[in-house]
């Protein structure tokens, strides 16, 4: 069974139709890259999957269960549950500037633990300790253990993005999404972020990556989706798409 299934997703802003019926599915541990020129709708697609935008039409299934269907009323509790299935890494990192690296990673899990255990101080304390241990493990994984007490403004862009990845992982999302994770970085800093993503692939994390890094997409993806004008114009394995593009649009896009 597919871990994620997107069916007939539509989204428009005002009169502009940005997504015109998107269908795709993703198996557990798979990495899919979404490529396409700007304005093709790839970021909107990712935002609909993360419920930062609510699709006008369509259905989203996780592990066979429908978690979103257009027209159904979404309570804020349901929204929270839906959002926690997915992790999101933004182009501009969006770390919380007033918190240290470790606090950034721990903030949301701590709030969730507080909600869950309410007045059970013993359980809460235990949960917070676990969260701390997990956060430290994650920091080690992204190679920033020595920066745990620094503030975001003291880090380079690449380091900030690695913290953002650790922060997203701290909630154990089923599927991790990246919205152009290296676009805001200097070229010499993209490598460290891409290395972290490579590492995640090796540990079987299901990922959706919107990217402009063609070489990276080719190397790390199990599947590539090429979007144009709000539809999936072509999809397939990296070699199918990169080496034997079929549509004219993709041929043009790859030549740029």
């Amino acid at each position: 069974m597919a871990e994620l299934e997107i069916k007939n997703l539509h989204k428009k802003f005002g009169k502009t139709k940005v997504l015109k019926g998107i269908d795709f599915s993703l198996e557990k541990g798979e990495v899919v890259s979404i490529i396409g020129s700007s304005g093709s709708g790839k970021t909107t697609l990712l935002r609909c999957i993360n419920f930062l935008e609510i699709a006008d039409e369509g259905e989203i299934k996780v592990d066979g269960n429908t978690i979103f269907k257009s027209g159904e009323n979404i309570t804020s509790k349901k929204m929270q549950e839906m959002q926690l299935l997915f992790g999101m890494v933004f182009q501009n990192f969006n770390l919380f500037p007033q918190y240290t690296v470790l606090e950034n990673i721990m903030l949301a899990p701590k709030l969730h633990a507080k909600q869950k255990y309410k007045n059970d101080f013993k359980m809460k304390k235990e949960a917070v300790e676990n969260i701390r241990q997990q956060a430290l493990t994650l920091l080690e994984r992204v190679g920033l253990t020595d920066k745990k007490d620094n503030y975001p403004c003291q880090l380079s862009g690449g380091q900030q993005q690695r913290v953002a990845i650790a922060r997203a992982l701290a909630l154990n999302p089923k599927i991790l999404c990246f919205d152009e994770p290296t676009s805001a970085l200097d070229p010499e800093l993209t490598g460290e972020v891409l290395n972290v993503i490579r590492g995640l692939k090796n540990s079987d994390t299901t990922m959706i990556v919107v990217t402009h890094e063609m070489e990276f997409a080719k190397e790390v993806s199990d599947k590539i989706i090429f979007m144009a004008d709000g539809i999936i114009a072509e999809e397939g394995t990296p070699s199918q798409l990169m080496d034997n593009p079929k549509t004219e649009r993709l041929i043009n896009f790859l030549q740029k």
Binding site: L52, G87, L107, A108, L171
Partner: peptide
Amino acid sequence: IPVGQYEAGQVLGMTKSQIFFKVVLLQ
């Protein structure tokens, strides 16, 4: 406050009031 701060809180499953008090207010 950049909208990205709210969105970051949202994708981390935080409620509106948690985002306001824990993320936005001090900024």
